[in-house]
Amino acid sequence: MMSSVPGPDKKSKLLVYTIEECPVCGQKTKRAFAVGDYVTKEAAKCSKCGNPTRIGLVYAETMKQSG
């Protein structure tokens, strides 16, 4: 009758990114999430064509443990 109780702080490290999408040329730029970012928010100018981009996605990736 043994069952294990997982600890509260056994989470894997997550890195959160913001993806900026250019509505004109489709260029996607990935950068670190900043507080205040939200999907559809206007973001920086497109590095390729200079049009204003919009935030298309915000998501987290599990950090790969290295060393």
């Binding site: 997550l14 959160v16 996605l57 915000v58 998501y59 987290a60 990736e61």
Partner: peptide, 11 residues
């Protein structure tokens, strides 16, 4: 919790 990549990419 914060949206995982697999979920976001399902969009």
């Amino acid at each position: 919790t914060v949206m995982r990549k697999e979920i976001a990419e399902a969009a």
